[in-house]
Amino acid sequence: MSVRIGVVVFPGSNRDGDTLHALRLAGAEPARLWHESASLDGVAAIVLPGGFAFGDYLRAGAIARFSPVMRAVSAFAAEGGLVLGICNGFQVLTEAGLVPGALTRNRGLRFVAREVAIVPERLDSPFTRQIDDRRPLRVPVAHGEGCWFADPETVDALERDGQVLFRYAHDDGTVAAGEEDRANPNGSVRAVAGVSNARGNVAGLMPHPEAAVEALLGSDDGLAIIRSLVESTRERVAGRAAVAAAAR
């Protein structure tokens, strides 16, 4: 059974094509959702891709959150639908208040594009379940405003509640020591690379799993994350169908 996953296209999105490509490799049937669309066209999950929505003018994601499609995305999330924001998509989700924290200028004040290592904090989330163990995943980052920030009490609470999904790590899998560790490419608080909302159905991450889905391009470690989303969506769709059948 193929699952339809929507990829939102804002003016200035530039990873939409890469995300579609990765979703196809992971067995999904992806579809573009134009930002002015108020409906989600019946997709079973949503990805907000990377890029520079509305040029990232004012602040990354600050304008995109007001696009008509975001109202539908919020409603979809409130119903428990799976939403993944990658890079600029993560920035849009934080601006929209759908995932905790904020993304600020990189600590080095320069754009940074490099392959990094990340480790999942938990393997039972809809976004990490296909990752086979806690080896570090090699995935690229490419951003100027990727320094994730939240106050210490909030981070404590997120850690306690299992909302931290990924952290930046060294090649051997040990988590980056903190904001100043070179393994942490942007100075994110406690090396956080990805978080989810309290319910666990909306996640944002700065690294690009969709850019690490083929060994030919250096790494296919990101495929496990994309596959997790696809499999979780498939189950959700199947579950709903079963509920509907039972109801009949």
Partner: peptide, 25 residues
């Protein structure tokens, strides 16, 4: 220098900057 450039968007970059000629599938 090249870490300030997005060298992999488009997911075609087989060999990016740093080691000889660039290769794009």
């Amino acid at each position: 220098v090249w870490e300030q450039y997005d060298w992999h968007v488009g997911t075609n970059t087989v060999t990016g900057p740093g080691t000889g000629a660039a290769v794009l599938r």
